[in-house]
Amino acid sequence: MSSSSPLVGKLESSTEIEASAEMFHHMLLHKPHHVSNASPNHVQACDLHHSDWGKEGSIICWTYFLKGKAKTAKEVVESVDPKNNSFTLRVLEGDILEEFKNVLVKCKATPSAKGSGCVVQWVLEYEKLREDVADPVTTMEMLVEVGKDMGAHLTKP
C-alpha cells in the first residue's frame, strides 16, 4: 500500500519538559510500570508480558484512559536507540486496533537547547481500517500529556 493512501497517516508532536532526556527515556522504556504514578489521570498500569523491561522484543501491556474510557494496548518494543534516547513500539492488540490495522509509536527525547530539560518528540504512524475512521489525534494528545506529567514527576524535589 502506498503512503499516499487516505488510510495511511502520521501525526507528530513535540513538547518541552523539565526532566533530562536520559531520565525521561529511562523511565518510559525501563520503568513504564512507574508511569501510572506520574500520570494517574491517563495511565492505570503497565505490565510486562514477555522478556525484560526496555529490551527489543519485550512485550508490555498498558491500561490507560482515553476520553474518559478505560482502554488497553499490548505493544512490542521494536527498536531501542539508547544513544539517542529513542525507541519504537508496535501495537499488537488492544482497543485502538478496532479502528486501525497498524499503529507504530515512536518516542525520542533530545536535550533542550536551553541547557536543562529536554524536548520529547512523539510520532504516531498508522493505517486505518476504513476511510471514515478519524486520525488518532486524541491518542497523540494523551501521549503529550503523559510526557508532560512524567517531566513534572521526574523533577519533583
Score class of each variant (00 low, 15 high):
H50F: 11
K55Q: 08
I59K: 10
G54K: 07
K55F: 01
H50S: 13
N84K: 15
T63H: 06
S58A: 14
S51C: 04
V80A: 10
N84D: 12
E56R: 08
E56I: 12
G57S: 01
E56M: 06
E75A: 08
S79L: 02
W53P: 00
E78S: 12
V77R: 03
L66V: 10
K55W: 02
G54I: 09
W53V: 13
S58T: 10
D81R: 14
D52N: 14
V77G: 03
E78V: 15
W53D: 05
V76A: 03
Y64T: 05
K71C: 03
K69D: 02
K83R: 15
T72M: 08
V77W: 02
I60C: 12
S58H: 09
T63Q: 10
G68L: 09
V80F: 07
Y64H: 04
T63Y: 06
E75S: 11
I59E: 01
S51K: 10
K69G: 00
N84G: 08
K69P: 00
K69Y: 06
V80K: 11
K67L: 10
A70T: 10
A73I: 13
G57K: 02
S58I: 08
W53H: 04
V76T: 06
K71L: 03
K55C: 01
G54H: 05
D81E: 15
